[in-house]
Computed example of a mutant assay.
Amino acid sequence: MITIGCHLSISKGFYQAGLDAVSIGASTFQFFTRNPRGGKAKAIDKTDVEQLQKIMNIHRFGPLVAHGAYTMNLCSDKPETRAFSRMIFQDDLERLKQLPESVYVFHPGSHVGQGAETGIALIVEALNELLTPETDNWILLEGMSGKGSEVGSAFEELKMIIDGVKNNRRLGICLDSCHLYSAGYDIVTDLDKVLDHADSLMGLERLKAFHLNDSLVPFNSRKDRHATIGEGSLGLEALVKVMTHPRLRHLPFNLETPNELPAHQEEIKKLKAAAAEFLP
């Protein structure tokens, strides 16, 4: 069974987000751990989580995906920004202990002119401080599109981060179809080659989540512009082949397309119907 969902708000609680997911035919969802543009985080209610877990069990949900705030930048050129990023990262890890069936995705960061090598060194330094042998949730570096001074658009950069972190047992990756295509990985005509490359560098066993998005921009554009499924440069067929690939189909797939619940429902319905033609 394909596990597919979308990004949902938890402003009304996890239970309501679970109900919203079920209402649109989803079997997972992604959520921000806190205000994506700030540092505030709502306290997690134990009863609310218990109610969500009942929904997840009944509807056979896959892992939930917690997304770190956009304001985090572990490789900023400003020490105060790096310190703030570590603080909210650490707080997120503590909060996720209350959500054991979840993985944590974050953008590696932007080196803002310091150079990728320096950026990677700062990210590694931070993760060596933050991740311990007791870290249980999977912590996932998101592969980026390569715009500006982003770190992590190349598999080689993700590998350097993973290899540099001492306690990397639970350090993995989350890939994004739009980001991959924009970064120059041709998942439309040569998906197997891309997966082989990722496997040879990082090991696909570290791939624990996937963002399924179409793209408003063409191949290798180095821009991050998500589009509704089937309305961009990747197209429905290519995205369904990603979702149903034997090496990927076990993953939780989440849409980050520019839509609200009713449109997400239509996208999920479309993807499921198309996927049925590819699955055994």
Rank of each mutant, 00 (worst) to 15 (best):
P79C: 00
G109T: 11
L99G: 03
T118H: 04
L93A: 02
F89S: 13
D136E: 13
K78G: 05
R82N: 08
N137H: 15
D77H: 00
A121N: 02
Q90D: 15
D77I: 01
N137R: 14
Q114G: 09
G143L: 12
E129V: 13
T118L: 04
E134V: 10
L127N: 07
V103S: 10
G148N: 09
G119F: 01
S102R: 15
I139P: 10
L131F: 08
I139Y: 03
L141V: 12
K97I: 05
I123E: 06
Y104V: 00
L127I: 13
I139M: 07
T118S: 00
G115H: 05
K147A: 07
H111A: 09
Y104A: 07
A83Q: 15
F106K: 15
I88C: 13
N137Q: 14
L99K: 14
L93V: 07
D77T: 09
E117C: 09
K97S: 12
N137G: 07
G148Q: 09
I120W: 01
E134R: 11
W138P: 11
P133L: 05
V124T: 04
N128K: 14
I139H: 14
D91I: 06
G148R: 13
G115N: 11
A83K: 15
M87E: 14
P79I: 04
N128T: 13
P79S: 02
R95I: 02
G143M: 12
L140G: 03
Q98E: 00
S102M: 08
G109S: 12
P79K: 04
T118V: 11
E117K: 15
L93G: 09
I139E: 02
K78M: 08
G148W: 11
A83P: 13
G113I: 03
R82G: 01
V124S: 01
Q98K: 11
E117G: 06
N128E: 10
S102E: 00
Q90W: 05
G119D: 00
S145T: 14
S145V: 11
P100S: 06
G113N: 05
D136Y: 07
G148D: 08
L127K: 13
G143V: 09
E134H: 08
I120Y: 01
S102V: 05
Q98Y: 02
S145E: 05
L131G: 12
G113F: 01
S145F: 13
Y104Q: 07
S85G: 10
M87R: 02
K78R: 06
T135E: 08
T135D: 09
L127F: 06
H111T: 07
E117F: 02
Q114V: 10
F84Y: 06
G113Q: 02
S149H: 11
A126D: 03
M87D: 14
T132N: 08
I139A: 08
G109R: 13
I120R: 08
L96P: 15
S102W: 06
L96D: 10
W138F: 07
H107G: 12
P108L: 04
R86K: 15
V124C: 01
L141W: 12
S85V: 04
L127Q: 06
E117V: 06
A121F: 01
G109Y: 05
P133F: 03
Q114P: 01
A126C: 04
F89D: 14
I139R: 12
D77V: 09
L131E: 07
T118F: 06
D92C: 15
L140A: 06
S110K: 10
M144T: 15
D136R: 15
V105Y: 01
K78P: 13
E142Q: 14
N137D: 01
V112D: 10
T81I: 00
P79M: 01
E142N: 14
K97E: 00
